Simulated assay, not measured.
Amino acid sequence: MRTSYGFHFNEPIPERLCVLESVGWGEAVDAGYGQDGLRRAGSGHLFQYTLAGEGAITVAGQTYRVPKHHGFFATIPSDHRYYYPPDGRKPWEFVWIRAKGGPMSDHWRHFIRVFGHVAAFRPDSEPVRLLWSLYREAGAQGLRDKYRMSLRLTEWLLAFERMAEGRDAGDRPLPDSLRRAKLFMESRVGDTVTLDDVAAAAGMSKHHFCKVYKAHTGVTPIHHLRKIRVEEAARLLRNTGLSVEEVSRQTGFDNVSYFGKVFRQFVGTTPSEYRKGQSNRYDGRQLQIVD
């Protein structure tokens, strides 16, 4: 288990304020990682968001998977346990935020009613962007004033509230055909995949598939395939010593020059520049992939 704390607050917490207890990045690599919500120390409310791989959480006997771009809500203490699943194939990489005080309990109950214990959140959604902003600001020692901290946390909570209010309009589940196509693309990141292959996974003609996919997701299938390849490439650049050429090969790009061009379009830097920048975990750039 590797962790990088952007912040850990250990001062007395005023009752009427929302106060950040901790925020950080972590990576679990084996089944030894887990937290029991009835046994761990302290109290508060936890949101943990998956960047890569997959975790799991059991709440009152019900188990939920927490795949990439999903987050879970948990209250400490409560009857829950989150962990790296025994059948995990990739490291579970995540960011978390834990806070308490003020109206946090009411917000958390509302979020769980609306979203469920586990929900999908786009990496460019307002709550996730604000989470990274809090992580960076805390890491730069910018949240030492408890009133500014409460203001920033309230802004983050209201981002979830705004999303909850419009959930029915903006967060419809994908039809099974498109979900199959997305799973097919995500499982074939390192392979040669054509648009015909993806459309076949959805059971549609190529022309109809492209039209329906963009109508539901706002992007083309090819854009999505490039994006998940770049995300996997970014993970490999962060967490392995593979050469840029090998990362290019393992993420399905025809040649390293084309890989560099696409990577820069999504991330804003070259693969080599991105790898150098990861020596500072507080910059949060692992999520700065334009959709």
Rank of each mutant, 00 (worst) to 15 (best):
E21W: 03
G44F: 08
R285G: 07
R16L: 09
I13N: 08
D168N: 09
L130A: 04
T3P: 00
N10I: 11
H107Q: 06
D283S: 11
L134N: 06
V193A: 03
R81C: 13
F160N: 05
E186G: 05
R275D: 05
F72N: 12
Y135D: 03
Q288H: 11
G34F: 13
Y282C: 05
R285I: 12
E186K: 12
L38W: 11
G32S: 13
T194I: 05
F72W: 06
Y83D: 08
A99E: 03
G218F: 01
W25A: 13
A199W: 03
R109D: 11
E137G: 08
V193M: 07
D283E: 12
A56P: 02
E93K: 13
D145V: 08
R2L: 11
F266A: 10
N10Y: 08
V256S: 15
V212R: 13
D191G: 01
G42V: 07
Y5S: 13
A201E: 03
I57T: 09
M1I: 04
G241Y: 08
Y33M: 13
E273F: 00
M104R: 03
V244I: 15
R162H: 12
R167G: 00
C210P: 00
G102P: 02
H223K: 08
Y84T: 03
F72H: 15
R179I: 01
V95T: 12
N239W: 14
H117R: 11
L225I: 02
Y84Q: 05
C210F: 00
G37Y: 02
R238M: 15
N239M: 09
A169E: 14
S187N: 13
E15F: 10
A140C: 07
A140G: 04
F72D: 07
N255V: 04
H207P: 00
G24H: 11
E93P: 00
F47P: 00
G284V: 03
V189N: 01
V95Y: 14
T240V: 10
G284Y: 01
V59K: 03
Y82Q: 09
L183K: 12
R180K: 15
L134E: 07
L242S: 13
A31L: 05
D283C: 05
H208C: 02
I222L: 08
K68E: 15
F94R: 03
P123V: 09
H70I: 06
H207R: 14
R144C: 07
R40P: 00
Q141M: 10
P271F: 02
I97T: 10
H224R: 08
D106I: 05
V189D: 01
R16P: 04
D254N: 09
T63D: 06
A159R: 06
Y82S: 13
T220A: 11
S78M: 03
F72A: 10
R249K: 15
P12F: 07
D197T: 05
F73H: 13
R188N: 15
H80K: 03
M204W: 07
V219H: 09
R148F: 11
F209L: 04
D30C: 11
V262Q: 12
L157V: 04
A140V: 00
F259W: 05
D291V: 04
L130W: 02
P77A: 11
F253R: 03
R167K: 15
S205I: 00
Y64W: 10
R238P: 01
V219N: 01
K68M: 14
H208F: 06
R152W: 04
F111R: 02
T194S: 15
G24A: 10
A234I: 04
A181E: 09
S177T: 14
K90V: 07
R98M: 14
